[in-house]
């Protein structure tokens, strides 16, 4: 059962004639990792950034089609493109978290970083905050490294630690879906390995969509892969099929490194 259903979704940036995404239809399956791959400018990040409507911080975008999000409590789908009110946006973004290309620690302590999403969601109980921060940090394999300096600034952590902190921060609010926008492109291979392990670990609890430039990464960690090119979804299938037995010529050319 897909936790998100993207249906005939088109997207146009303001001041541009042609759409950046053309009638994309794609499921994000529950407790699976879906990788979005394709050459630069194919629209994979645009698609990802539409799934929590973070694009709407900047006015003037045009949408068409539907992006449906499953409400795990009621079992009903809601079209997130219809969201207009601020409180609905907040609710959406608490359900659909996001990790960015560069680590984005906030200018505050490690504890406050992880607790931030909880605090703005209205959780004030100190012991509950403490428990959930600890669990999120343990779940992000960061607890051992930072448990004795939770009150220190998050800016003092290494790049890889900062990115795991951002994952802990997103996990702490217990989202249904996590969107990763090239989460390891600014990290060294060892940190990248740790993040990849973590993402695989996380799919027990959340459904994941990840944009990546790194095809090995997509083949290593994802269950499903969508190949996009110039705003079109060329092929979507199980990851092993995409990499071992692609149906489309363009997909084969891209994954064998003939272009892109």
């Amino acid at each position: 059962m897909p936790v998100m259903n993207i249906k005939k979704f088109s997207f146009t940036y303001p001041g541009v004639d042609h759409p950046s995404l053309k009638s994309i239809t794609l499921p994000i399956k529950k407790n699976k990792i879906t990788a979005l791959i394709g050459p630069s400018g194919c629209g994979k990040s645009t698609l990802l950034r539409s799934m929590n409507r973070i694009h709407d911080l900047y006015p003037g975008n045009k949408y068409d089609g539907k992006i449906e999000l499953l409400d795990l409590d009621t079992g009903k789908y809601q079209n997130i493109l219809e969201i207009k009110k601020e409180n609905e946006f907040i609710e959406l973004r608490q359900k659909v978290g996001m990790i960015f290309q560069k680590p984005t620690p906030f200018p505050m302590s490690i504890f406050d970083n992880v607790a931030y999403g909880l605090k703005i969601a209205g959780i004030k109980n100190k012991s509950e905050l403490k428990d959930r921060v600890e669990n999120a940090l343990k779940g992000s394999a960061l607890w051992k490294e930072v448990h004795d300096r939770l009150d220190k600034s998050a800016m003092g952590l290494s790049g890889g630690q900062q990115q795991r902190l951002c994952i802990a921060r997103a996990v702490a609010v217990k989202p249904e879906v996590l969107l990763f926008d090239e989460p390891t492109s600014a990290l060294d291979p060892i940190s990248t390995g740790a993040i990849e392990e973590l993402i695989v670990e996380l799919k027990k609890d959340v459904s994941i969509a990840i944009v990546t430039h790194n095809m090995q990464q997509a083949s290593r960690i994802s269950d499903y892969t969508a190949f996009m090119y110039l705003g079109d979804l060329i092929e979507y299938d199980k990851t092993e099929n995409i990499f071992l037995n692609p149906k489309e010529k363009q997909t084969e050319d891209y994954i064998t490194g003939r272009f892109g």
Binding site: L57, F89, I90, M98, F100, F106, P107, M108, Y116, A170
Partner: peptide, 29 residues
């Protein structure tokens, strides 16, 4: 203040006021 830092806070469900208070002010202190 880097746009991606503000986006990170919005992506956690922060309101505009919270982003200004918790991210932009500390960052531009």
């Amino acid at each position: 203040t880097p746009a991606v830092l503000k986006e990170s806070a919005y992506a956690l469900g922060a309101t505009k006021f919270e982003v200004i208070k918790d991210i932009i002010f500390p960052y531009s202190k």
